[in-house]
């Protein structure tokens, strides 16, 4: 058998990379609008700063390394936008700048630019800043000073500190409608789902990772919930809070850091979902989605080795 090896992204040969990125950005627009509607100028400030920094960093780094500047493929804009979406609205300007720069530099350019990054660059930037300045990631403080028409406490932090009794008054419908505190864009669950369904429908991402990620989260959370529902939150709560929805559609599906064959993607998604719940329940962090994706990114080269006929099933090659 002859294997054709090339670096991802590689499906949709007829569509160029710039177009994919353009549509991913379009898919994020509902969530961006919702965030600006809820948090006003503060949200817009973080988003604008992150996007600008991402673009400028890419230009500077590429100039310095004497490589062609590929800013028009839109990938830097997408990284900046996604980075802003998972940050709190109260993030100080310098933290946005440093985080976005690290996303572009450590997350992507060091490894050779678009398509070569082994981990999701957005999450790399987020993880470094999260470890360095944990105080600015306190989402409870991020909501102080806003006149919000919903519970101003971060649901996952409440779950971590107070147990399942504390989250009883979060209605699932409110969580779905984005009436919750979280990252400035990642809390807008329904709007991210709309964007996610759009890119799925148009075929810019495939269904395997979103579906298996969702199944992973629900299955793992159900195991805990069914064993002791007085101690563990219900699975739908886990699905709708924190960065899960943005992770499912936009972060886990990053082309170069996720596997490219069907079974690899399914294992990858399940792994992300299971790790998310494990980290939420047992780690010191309220939300484990981003670390879960980061960990599974590291398994991608291994998962890429899964070829035909796993589990003795006859499957079509992608």
């Amino acid at each position: 058998m002859k294997l054709i090896v090339s670096s991802p992204p590689h499906w949709h040969a007829k569509i160029d990379v710039a177009k994919i990125h353009l549509h991913l950005i379009i898919a994020l627009i509902p969530a961006v609008l919702f965030s600006v509607y809820t948090y006003g100028i503060h949200s817009a400030r973080v988003i604008a700063l992150a996007v600008a920094t991402a673009v400028i960093s890419e230009i500077l780094i590429r100039r310095l390394l004497k490589k062609p500047v590929t800013i028009d493929d839109g990938s830097a804009i997408l990284i900046g936008l996604l980075f802003a979406m998972i940050m709190p609205t109260s993030t100080p300007y310098w933290l946005v700048v440093i985080g976005t720069f690290l996303s572009i530099f450590i997350g992507r350019e060091i490894f050779g630019g678009l398509g070569c990054n082994p981990m999701n660059p957005v999450i790399v930037g987020w993880a470094i800043t999260r470890i360095s300045w944990p105080n600015y990631f306190n989402l409870d403080l991020a909501s102080v000073g806003y006149n919000l028409d919903f519970n101003y406490r971060y649901p996952l932090a409440l779950l971590k500190s107070g147990g399942v009794d504390q989250i009883a008054d979060f209605a699932l419908i409110d969580l779905l409608l984005g009436k919750q505190v979280g990252g400035l864009g990642s809390a807008a669950a329904i709007f991210l789902v709309i964007g996610g369904v759009y890119i799925l429908y148009r075929g810019f991402i495939t269904w395997e990772i979103p579906l298996s990620f969702t199944v992973g989260v629900l299955a793992m959370a159900s195991i805990f919930w069914l064993t002791d529902s007085s101690q563990y939150a219900n699975p739908v709560f886990h699905l709708l809070t924190g960065n899960v929805i943005i992770g499912i559609f936009f972060l886990a599906t990053d082309f170069s850091s996720s596997p490219f064959n069907r079974w690899g993607m399914i294992v990858f998604g399940l792994g992300c979902g299971i790790l998310t719940i494990i980290l939420r329940i047992w780690s010191i962090y309220p939300d484990g989605v981003l670390f879960a994706i980061l960990i599974m990114n590291l398994f991608t080269p291994l998962l890429d080795k899964i070829h035909k006929k796993p589990l003795h099933l006859e499957i079509k090659e992608l």
């Binding site: 450590i106 060091i110 470890i131 360095s132 300045w133």
Partner: peptide
């Protein structure tokens, strides 16, 4: 100045050395 605590963590050492 807010210390860039990542640098004195283990992964910071790897990234610093790599750069």
């Amino acid at each position: 100045y807010e210390p860039f605590a990542f640098m004195i963590e283990a992964p910071g050492a790897f990234i610093c050395l790599g750069l």
